[in-house]
Nucleic acid binder design. Structure first.
Lengths: 188, 188
DNA sequence: CTTGGCTATGCAACGAGTTGCATATCAAGA
DNA sequence: TCTTGATATGCAACTCGTTGCATAGCCAAG
């Protein structure tokens, strides 16, 4: 159900098409909720027929219509209601951790490459988040006093930054452990 | 697919019944991969018919048979193969973060209670992890020199601990932000 | 003595999410 | 010129995961 609510939040921040939403889910919103365009199109259609969203079809020459969605009162109400319901604290699903425990039944040193790859992906993501933070919140290009929405976006982004930093430190710990177990030298 | 592999790891560490697996998924394995008993029973059945697992039925008086599963060579091979395939770095799915951004379109102070509840859940989980770490790895009751499997279990547990600590610190940041926005006093 | 919780397995239905494919136009680069 | 990539939407088939329910005996607390 959370995809529906993530879409409502995103469309309240800014109306847009399914395609645009998919791109936002690859960027800001996607920092904490992912979705493919297939899923987004399907859910948008359902939400529209449920009366939560309004569509405005922009006819384009020699292309299918661009469909710009925006949130109706019923959608805003649905979001408000969800905000007042308690949700379960997340439980993590970390495939790499399964692999690490599985390495006990295989060759631990074979995992080193994979862990290094993940470390790089997380450190890239961290750099990306930090650049976004500079741009939108802390750097000279940032707007002046922030409104509530921006403050909340910033605190969520700080969460993403903290998550990536923690993950990188942990992966270093994992790498050190794997090297220790396989008697190899950690490089750099 | 990862549930299959998590089950293989768990059954390699120790054969067991579906029910026992479900409990392990509420404890150690579940620190990084969750599953309900329904899912586990279904996947166990499939894995058995795929020849990855062996079942030994223990007839019990006046009860349905207890089915103890263990990993066959094909299962071990399937795990080994998976270990050598690269996987995508995880993307987080954090419902609470969706709520926090959504709070901009509702009353931010209404979220404080919910965030405090999550903070408590994470701090309970942290205490639980730390107790487990003392018991199995760092305390006086811990076994002597650890084997590779235990080292790897420990590093995964350290990841869980780091995750909970990071999350608690972040939720404190969120609470401070929510209080600031709603002009209320943070209570200790 | 009854209620609730634990052990133990399972079906049925549904909802969430992924993967592969298909369509169609346009612009930039090889 | 041909290919690649971006824009833009969508179907079909599938797997994954959740929820509700059912069975069935055991044990402990109120």
């Amino acid at each position: 159900m959370a995809l529906e609510h993530a879409i409502l939040v995103s469309l309240l921040e800014q109306p847009g098409t399914g395609y645009e939403l998919a791109r936002r889910f690859d960027r800001s919103i996607g920092y904490f909720w992912t979705a493919t365009h297939q899923q987004i199109y399907r859910v948008l259609k359902r939400m529209e027929s449920d009366g939560l969203l309004a569509v405005r079809g922009l006819p384009q020459q020699s292309r299918p219509d661009k469909k710009v969605y925006s949130v109706m009162d019923a959608g805003r109400a649905a979001l408000a209601q969800w905000l007042h319901e308690p949700i379960e604290p997340e439980s993590i699903r970390h495939e790499l951790a399964v692999k690490i425990r599985g390495a006990a039944f295989d060759d631990p040193s074979a995992l080193i490459r994979e862990v290094e790859r993940h470390r790089k992906a997380h450190s890239d993501r961290l750099a990306h988040y930090l650049a976004g933070e500079q741009r939108d919140f802390t750097g000279p290009t940032a707007p002046g006093p922030l409104d509530a929405g921006q403050e909340l976006q910033h605190v969520v982004l700080r969460g993403g930054i903290a998550y990536e930093r923690m993950t990188i430190a942990w992966l270093d710990d994992v790498l050190a452990t794997l090297h220790r177990l396989s008697g190899t030298q950690p490089r750099d």
